[in-house]
Design a protein around this nucleic acid. Structure first.
Lengths: 213, 213
DNA sequence: GGCTAATGTTACCGTAGGTAACACCATAGT
DNA sequence: ACTATGGTGTTACCTACGGTAACATTAGCC
């Protein structure tokens, strides 16, 4: 039958695709985001044109690769965001989940955050099109949760989006810096960031003798 | 004399270097971060090897280019950070200064934030080495200001650093998203972010009937 | 058997980063 | 005046990578 045939083919192609993605994963984890298509093909035991048939171009491959990890991380974050606990606890859990993930697999993190892509064709200057999609997705996700659960008045929807992206950016930048310098434990970092979100910056006192802040 | 000679040569080389950087600037602003060394050389009216003699490699050129813009932006931010006003006002001024800068010249911003470099030589996986240096420098700068002026107790130094990088990340991510979607005015964005830093997330009430947050 | 289609290959192209080797021209030293 | 030096500039080349065209090979279906 036509449909079963197409289904079979699709299933086979999907399996192959998964295998290729796993090979690509290994190479990217080993060689970093600069991994070449040749290297990936070699790891998969095949040659370049096959990769191109499956993924179109390097951007396609990397997008597929990123989607897997992004989805996985987003699932973890959703779980933390939905845990039954009070707000502060939940915020800390979410921060910790993210930081634990990037700590456990810095290569994956680096790959996701530094796409280094951006086909430079004719487009005039599409800022925003090139930012790491993971950050955007996390920001939107968080915005959704905030907007759903918090009563923020008339402009609450917009406020939630700003906060979603802002908090994600805070988490990301702090995590990136922390991963590089390791100046404190993960728990301390989580506490510090939660303190920041809880307004401790605004509440802190000026240093005696200082010019004030 | 030897010294005067070397000074003369150095002065000439410096002038040339500045000219080359200005040409590179024009090309990068026109063609985006993917601008080729050939294109830059052509714009400067010379050929590639000269660029390489002056800057070593593309990373060197881009680093020099980035340093100019980064220094300029940091100066603006320092001014806002040092303005005579109360804390909230100063925070808003700083946020606004940054956002006005990226709004005025998105190409420069895009270039600074997306180095897209990372010479893929043998290095094993230096996470943090590849993050945009601008973010790091802004984070350190802010950390310094916070640590200098706020009384944050015994672990204040470390807290200030976390907050510095965190706040800069928040500003960056929110700005990046805002620049792409333009969902509100700059002033509204500034207010929303300042509200977030002032603990409004922690203070907001749960939505009626929701699962709480 | 013969058609189609997927899977695989080799061999190639264009472009970009980077370099080697050579030419030009000023100035300094003798 | 004649050379040596050092900066400026060139052409021509190498390598590596993304991407593609054209050609084998094998499997299933009529």
């Amino acid at each position: 039958m036509d449909t079963t045939q197409r289904t079979d083919q699709a299933r086979s192609a999907d399996r192959r695709r998964r295998e290729l993605l796993e090979a690509a994963d290994r190479v990217v984890l080993r060689d970093g985001p600069g991994a070449s298509m040749n290297a990936i093909a070699a790891e998969a035991g095949i040659t370049k044109p096959i990769l191109y048939r499956h993924f179109g171009d390097k951007g396609g491959l990397y997008a597929a690769l990123a989607k897997r990890h992004t989805d996985a991380l987003l699932d973890s974050l959703r779980a933390a965001l939905d845990a039954p606990a009070e707000r502060r606890e939940r915020v800390e859990q979410t921060l910790d989940t993210y930081l634990a993930a990037i700590e456990a697999r810095p290569q994956v993190y680096r790959f996701l955050m530094h796409p280094s892509e951006g086909g430079q064709q004719t487009e005039g200057f599409d800022v925003g099109k090139h930012s790491a999609p993971l950050l955007r997705r996390m920001g939107e996700e968080l915005a959704h949760v905030i907007g759903d659960r918090l009563d923020l008045g008339p402009a609450g929807e917009q406020l939630a989006r700003v906060w979603g992206h802002g908090i994600v950016g805070m988490m990301h930048a702090a995590g990136d810096w922390w991963l590089g310098e390791r100046p404190c434990t993960r728990a301390e970092l989580v506490r510090s960031l939660a303190d920041l979100l809880w307004g401790r910056l605004a509440a802190a006192g000026d240093k005696v003798g200082g010019p004030g802040f």
